[in-house]
């Protein structure tokens, strides 16, 4: 796992489908994740994007940071627009048009995916269109100013469920979105993180090789929303994996495999401590989170062992 030669970074393509000059926050882990996704996708791709940080930072009229065909329409419908693109291309090809090969990829934030666009995504999966859906999960609605989503982790303080005398922030556990994708019986589901770029890019390639829907869930650290220094983005992403908070796994045709399983998980406090959004947590709450992480991690391991 990410123990490739220290010179491996040099092998990553220099080609940019998402160009510099984009306006993401300094240190943005979501833009970094997107960079890796685009490098792995190459140029034969049509990108459909939902409203959110990555859309806003790349598409201020009359500019674009994109070098591949790109369409943004609304917040909740990227999966559906993608199915329209895919269906039209199939029909046109059947009727004799000579279309260059292209994979349709829909990209949305956690808000777009877990919440407002979940029905649309479920419909698109169920109908079996040939497309990849990428969720860039920064665990809140960042574009509108750090409001909670159903991807926000338990205990995190957001602007719509802030910590206070009578609140410890998010009071619900993060929705298990990959499991929802798996429940649609699609051929490929995987989690990935911008802190593990080779694993991430490898999974993108696997996902687009699949005929039919595939789902990639990428952990994307947001220094602004998580209240961490901008240089800590990669570190915090690694800690999420090393503590078992965000395990990296794949589900291929229903079969789970855990891609990184350290002999000993680090305590979750190592992950929570550097982040301002968890600053208010008491030791009891940290303990509660630890119990939950242990349970969830064991569950994934068990599935992978089957």
């Amino acid at each position: 796992m990410e123990t490739l030669s220290i010179y491996a970074p040099r092998l990553v393509t220099k080609r940019q489908s998402l160009t510099p000059g984009h306006r993401a926050c300094s240190g943005c882990g979501e833009a970094l994740a997107l960079k890796f996704v685009m490098k792995a996708l190459g140029r034969d791709v049509i990108v459909v994007m939902s409203t959110g940080c990555m859309e806003i930072i790349s598409s201020q009229l009359p500019y674009t940071a994109w070098e591949v065909p790109w369409i943004h329409t609304l917040f909740e419908n990227a999966a559906t627009v993608a199915t329209g693109v895919e269906s039209a291309r199939k029909a046109l090809a059947r009727k004799g048009a000579s279309l260059p090969k292209a994979k349709v990829v829909a990209i949305g934030g956690d808000g777009a995916t877990f919440d407002i666009g979940l029905g649309a995504l479920s419909g698109a999966f169920e109908r079996g269109h040939d497309f990849l859906y990428v969720c860039l999960d920064n665990e809140a609605y960042m574009n509108t100013g750090i409001q909670r989503s159903s991807a926000t982790p338990y205990g995190a303080s957001t602007t719509t469920q802030p910590a206070g005398k009578a609140s410890f922030g998010q009071s619900t556990w993060k929705k298990n979105m990959p499991a929802i994708a798996v429940a649609h019986d699609i051929a490929y589901v995987a989690t990935a993180s911008a802190s593990y770029p080779f694993d991430l890019m490898n999974k993108v390639k696997k996902a687009i090789a699949v005929e039919g829907p595939s789902y990639l869930h990428i952990f994307a650290v947001c220094p602004t929303g998580w209240r961490i220094p901008t240089d800590m983005t990669i570190r915090v992403g690694r800690l999420a994996v090393e503590t078992g908070v965000f395990p990296l796994y794949e589900v291929e045709n229903g079969k789970y495999s855990l891609n990184y399983d350290p002999p000993q998980l680090r305590p979750v406090i190592d992950y929570l401590k550097p982040q301002g959004r968890f600053r208010h947590l008491t030791p009891e709450m940290v303990d509660k989170i630890q119990q939950r992480v242990n349970k969830e991690y064991a569950r994934i391991k068990e599935k992978a062992a089957q």
Partner: peptide, 28 residues
């Protein structure tokens, strides 16, 4: 009729799929 009929899960999606189809060059 040689067309793809997309049985979407809502009207919001009906027109959203049409956006994608039309933008991809399909008569929609």
């Amino acid at each position: 009729l040689d067309a793809n009929y997309i049985p979407v899960e809502s009207e919001h999606s009906a027109l959203s799929a049409c956006l994608g189809s039309s933008a991809a060059g399909g008569r929609t």
